[in-house]
């Protein structure tokens, strides 16, 4: 017993080191393999608060550009609205009211690493939940990953380890998976697009509704380049994002009100 205590005492640095090493590797593995890392993320009050303060100061410098962006979006939506009214006499518009939309400010944005996250200043207090879709005025941004009371982290589409988003070619029902290879923040990749899909450069890629996260038809980007994969059954496509992921200040969070119901139904079917 005495020897054991002596041994522990002599090697206490090594033991502390090994203990902490196991803990930190545990955090890394947890962040990789399980969907949510519960403890170490920027949606807590310390890092969220610091990012919020920094954004408050910084946002004054980009007010003009942000205003312009919002005005452009407003005019685009206004145009859509005006044109809808004209057609309403001969076509019935069905308002499904399936989606809730929240707005938020981005308080931290990474795009330079391989696995990027954003932090936004809305949390569970404002009704934000995990797995909601996040878009900007131009296209998709990512999916909510962790939430705290006042903040949430967003798994960016620029996350080469985890981000897998369902996408489809506009005006066709062929769907594929959107991933990122970690090189250029403007270029994403579509994988598993069937060879049967008839695509050409410049085609628009948008979200499809299969994932129940995004509504159908949110723009993603346009096809920049494509070639057949080695076994010749699927296309490998490079997509140029509509969104400038390096410059995002305001985002919208979209909640599909029927998602829980759909998932419950699908789980039942799988049992």
């Amino acid at each position: 017993m005495q020897q054991l205590i002596n041994f522990l005492f002599r090697n206490k640095h090594v033991l502390l080191f090994l203990l902490l090493l196991i803990i930190s590797i545990g955090f890394t593995v947890q962040n990789r393999s399980f969907h949510k890392s519960k403890f170490i993320n920027s949606a807590n009050f310390i890092s969220g608060g610091i990012y919020q303060q920094a954004t408050d100061v910084e946002s004054y410098f980009s007010l003009k550009a942000e205003n312009k962006k919002l005005l452009e979006e407003n005019s685009r939506l206004r145009k859509l609205l005006v044109n809808t009214e004209i057609q309403e006499q001969n076509r019935k518009i069905v308002n499904r009211n399936n989606y809730k939309v929240y707005s938020a400010q981005v308080i931290n944005n990474n795009y330079a690493k391989r696995n990027n996250f954003l932090t936004i200043n809305k949390g569970t207090k404002d009704g934000i939940k995990e797995d909601l879709g996040v878009i900007s005025s131009k296209g998709i941004v990512g999916i909510i990953r962790n939430t705290s009371n006042n903040y949430a982290t967003v798994l960016s589409v620029l996350n080469s380890a985890d981000s897998r988003i369902n996408a489809q070619i506009k005006n066709s029902n062929h769907f594929a998976t959107l991933v990122w290879d970690g090189v250029d923040p403007n270029i994403l990749q579509l994988i598993n697009l069937p060879k049967l899909a008839n695509i050409k450069k410049g085609d628009t890629v948008e979200t499809n509704a299969y994932s129940n996260i995004f509504p159908e038809g949110i723009p993603i980007g346009k096809i920049r380049d494509y070639n057949l994969s080695e076994n010749n059954n699927y296309y490998e496509v490079d997509i140029e994002l509509f969104n400038d992921m390096t410059n995002i200040k305001h985002v919208y969070i979209i909640e599909n009100k029927n998602r829980d119901e759909i998932i419950a139904l699908e789980n039942k079917a799988n049992e």
Binding site: I23, I25, T28, N31, S42, N44, Y51, N110, K113, F117
Partner: peptide
């Protein structure tokens, strides 16, 4: 050793990177 771990973990917290800086 503990301070090193804490420093890495703080950076990890801000950059959502799990425990790679801590290790």
């Amino acid at each position: 050793i503990f301070l090193c771990f804490l420093l890495g973990l703080t950076i990890d917290m801000f950059s959502n990177s799990g425990g790679i800086h801590a290790t």
